[in-house]
């Protein structure tokens, strides 16, 4: 039995004993994840890596990459993040680089609970990109996974 499974069973058992009845499965996963996050001082580094991998495997997140490319100007980040926030796309990571004189902003976003379709989000980004003379691409992360990872 893997470590995460052991923790989940343990939490389930405690809740059963203390409160009676079983806990909702999603809630159980989330509690287990939080405990795993706090375990860094309690387990060996190799066990921690294993836990982290298991935790990522079971995530419900669906990631997409937003690439903003063009000439640098004031307010690009503000505009892009505003659109993402308004549509409930959570930003997981953000990298900025200057490549061959061009500004490149790469955001990884979780699109599992966005309010609109990716197509619509792309349209909103296109409108913003036109105003600032940029190109903005939203692509599901699988395209990068398939082309760059074996």
């Amino acid at each position: 039995m893997d470590i995460k499974q052991r923790i989940e069973n343990m939490v389930n058992q405690i809740i059963n004993e203390e409160l009676g009845g079983n806990i909702d499965k999603d809630k159980l996963h989330s509690i287990a994840d939080k405990i795993i996050g706090e375990l860094s001082t309690l387990v060996t580094p190799s066990e921690l890596v294993l836990l982290k991998m298991l935790s990522e495997e079971k995530t419900n997140k669906e990631m997409a990459v937003v690439s903003v490319i063009g000439q640098d100007s004031v307010g690009i980040v503000a505009e892009v993040t505003r659109i993402l926030a308004e549509n409930h796309a959570n930003i997981e990571s953000m990298t900025q680089a200057i490549v061959s004189g061009y500004f490149a902003l790469i955001l990884t976003i979780d699109v599992s609970s966005i309010k609109v379709t990716i197509d619509k989000l792309q349209q909103l980004m296109d409108a913003a990109a036109d105003k600032k003379n940029l190109k903005i691409y939203i692509q599901h992360e699988d395209i990068f996974k398939s082309m760059n990872r074996i």
């Binding site: 690439s67 490319i69 990571s93 790469i106 990884t108 691409y137 692509q139 992360e141 760059n148 990872r149």
Partner: peptide
């Protein structure tokens, strides 16, 4: 999964240019 900026830009360049 984390991607290098160069990987992302390479894919975009292939598709767009």
């Amino acid at each position: 999964m984390n991607f290098e900026v160069s990987e992302i830009l390479e894919t975009i360049k292939m598709n767009s240019l």
